[in-house]
């Protein structure tokens, strides 16, 4: 048991080190600073006090950056190991395929969550200093649900890395996540007047594609609507866990069938 935990911790540590070695986080932070600092000083028509547009831009940057990091980090976990044949020594150690898969997944998830957490922390400090808004409950809830989003997206991208090439996985995962983010809520209404095959496809997408729009509390944060009820938040987190476990189960099955 201890050996298994040590192996998981080592795999997580590897993912974290890889994330910070690649400098993605620093680029995002610098970009955010470059965009937000001048905007914070902007007083249109000499009227100050507007803050919602800053919240909107900051949260959009956080969402785009975290999705990009999560898909990238999770999608990069296995393909290089197969390509460089380093998967053999890893499996030759007393580490099962399940441990390796769970360790890699937890590594990708924790690296994405840590990067997103650091974005939220900096954004929270910025909002506190600039707008005197110190970490309201809806902000905390938005972060928690965002971690749920990462749970789903990392599992989905890891599954994709076993199905298609790394570049195709990055593209397909990006399109699916972006598409569901934009249209996931309205799939049924959008295809209502279309022929049956299109409606069937929409129904299938509605049933199996990751409903990442469940985790988006930006509007509530920006426009001060307050947090959602605990039952809704719990249902969304349960969805995230079930979806991630389902993706990992399929990934595990593909991994076991794959000849290294």
């Amino acid at each position: 048991m201890n050996a298994c935990l040590r192996q998981l911790a080592a795999l997580c540590g590897l993912s974290l080190r890889e994330l910070f070695r690649r400098k993605d986080v620093w680029v995002v932070l610098a970009l955010g600073l470059l965009i937000l600092a001048p905007l914070a000083e902007l007083k249109p028509y000499g009227i100050g006090g507007a803050s919602r547009h800053l919240h909107e831009i900051a949260l959009l940057l956080i969402w785009v950056a975290s999705a990009f990091i999560a898909i990238g980090v999770a999608g990069r976990q296995f393909p290089p190991e197969f390509e460089h044949r380093t998967i053999h020594p890893m499996l030759a150690k007393p580490a099962s395929r399940t441990t390796l898969l769970v360790g890699k997944y937890l590594g990708a998830w924790s690296a994405s969550a840590l990067a997103t957490g650091s974005f939220y922390l900096l954004y929270g400090l910025f909002a506190g200093v600039k707008m005197d808004l110190w970490f309201p409950p809806v902000f905390i809830q938005a972060f928690v649900l965002h971690v749920g989003f990462l749970t789903v997206v990392t599992a989905f991208s890891m599954l994709g890395s076993f199905c298609v090439t790394p570049a195709a996985n990055l593209t397909v995962s990006g399109i699916v996540v972006g598409g569901m983010f934009a249209f996931g809520e309205h799939l049924e209404e959008m295809t209502a007047g279309h022929p049956a095959p299109i409606r069937a496809l929409a129904w299938l997408a509605d049933a199996i594609a990751p409903h990442v729009e469940f985790f988006d509390l930006r509007r509530r944060v920006i426009h001060e609507w307050g947090p959602v009820g605990a039952d809704v938040a719990a249902a969304v987190m349960l969805y995230a866990v079930v979806y991630a476990v389902a993706c990992l189960a399929i990934t595990g099955w593909l991994f076991r069938r794959r000849t290294c």
Binding site: H211, E213, R219, H223, W225, V228, V232, A235, Y239
Partner: peptide, 12 residues
């Protein structure tokens, strides 16, 4: 519908 129920609560 569970998805609609969640969306109705999450999205204002």
């Amino acid at each position: 519908h569970p998805w609609r129920w969640i969306n109705a609560h999450i999205h204002i």
